[in-house]
Amino acid sequence: MQYESLDDFLKTGRVALSKGPVALVFAEDDVELDGTLRHHLDLGFKAVIAFIPPEFTIQPEIAERVHHIVMRCVPRATVFDAVNRVIQAAPNVWMYYCYNSEYLFFPFCETRTVGELLAFHTEERRDAMLCHVIDIYADDLSAHPNGVAPDNAMLDSIGYYAHARHDAAGQPLERQLDMSGGLRWRFEDHIPFERRRIDRISIFKSRKGLTLLPDHTFNVAEYNTYSCPWHHNLTAAICSFRAAKALKSNAGSTFDIDSFRWPKSVPFQWNSRQLLDLGLIEPGQWF
């Protein structure tokens, strides 16, 4: 079903928010838009809500299965405002947000649904889940000049780092880390400092007063933690062509980059087992 605006959806389509988990997908461009929506539909979300500019179209069989809100997703603050409006409209619902050309992976996602994942996470008294944004990129930029190649994607097998996160007074924040790695690390000269982190709290339970901040964290400190105090919890990955697209579409970087490959590039296998083996997602106590 299509809605002419977010206001229209919140007036006439809020039933889609009555039961989670709900996926919010924001289309910055039309690259891999159908593939992104199909991937998240297959994960078992109760509703997939797509925010799509009016000039973009999606395949009819996908359109039948998603809630299509007509909206331009730039500037980037528009996305954060939309997520926060949805949070306040539907408290106590598990939600997830991403952009087009991004794909959620979690432990055992080939045989278990996102609903099963979050049922277990809820039992562990967690209201949010840390996700790592793992850059994927085309193996050959001469064949795929925009950096996007789902059938020939690569990722970095090493080069991921955790840094202690500090508050305004310089004190370390409990169970919070700033993560770096991937293309944002290797090509950091072309990435603004505030965009280099690869940690994102993309999966969370909405509640009144909760606010998503422009750095992909929340105004509630516990939502930004990677685990509870007593043991490790589940984490997920968002495998993303977004950095590759940006580096190859930006005039300040595209001519400096003739390949994203380096000696530690490996083919992306499109499964959770590879991400588990590389230590990029954590099963916690879920077996």
Score class of each variant (00 low, 15 high):
47 A>C: 06
251 A>F: 15
7 D>I: 15
94 W>Q: 02
145 P>T: 06
154 M>P: 07
184 R>S: 02
130 L>H: 05
14 R>Q: 14
13 G>Y: 09
22 V>R: 00
121 H>N: 14
94 W>M: 00
48 V>S: 01
130 L>W: 00
146 N>P: 04
63 A>R: 14
13 G>F: 04
64 E>Y: 04
95 M>Y: 06
69 I>R: 14
86 V>F: 03
22 V>E: 01
96 Y>T: 10
7 D>H: 05
173 L>V: 15
194 E>D: 08
108 F>Y: 09
166 H>Q: 09
214 P>G: 02
165 R>L: 14
102 E>G: 11
42 D>Y: 08
118 L>R: 07
278 L>I: 07
4 E>S: 07
188 E>M: 08
224 N>V: 03
135 D>I: 02
203 I>A: 05
200 R>Q: 10
247 L>M: 13
139 D>F: 13
192 P>S: 14
268 F>P: 06
146 N>M: 14
68 H>I: 14
85 R>L: 09
92 N>F: 01
244 A>Y: 12
135 D>E: 12
13 G>P: 09
213 L>D: 03
197 R>G: 03
163 H>I: 03
97 Y>D: 00
207 R>K: 09
197 R>D: 08
83 V>A: 04
177 L>I: 07
6 L>K: 08
274 Q>L: 13
9 F>Y: 03
157 S>D: 15
245 K>Q: 14
196 R>N: 11
49 I>A: 02
259 S>Q: 04
130 L>C: 00
130 L>I: 09
109 C>W: 03
271 N>T: 10
238 I>C: 02
235 T>A: 12
224 N>F: 03
163 H>E: 06
186 R>I: 07
162 A>G: 01
129 M>C: 04
52 I>P: 00
13 G>K: 07
229 P>R: 03
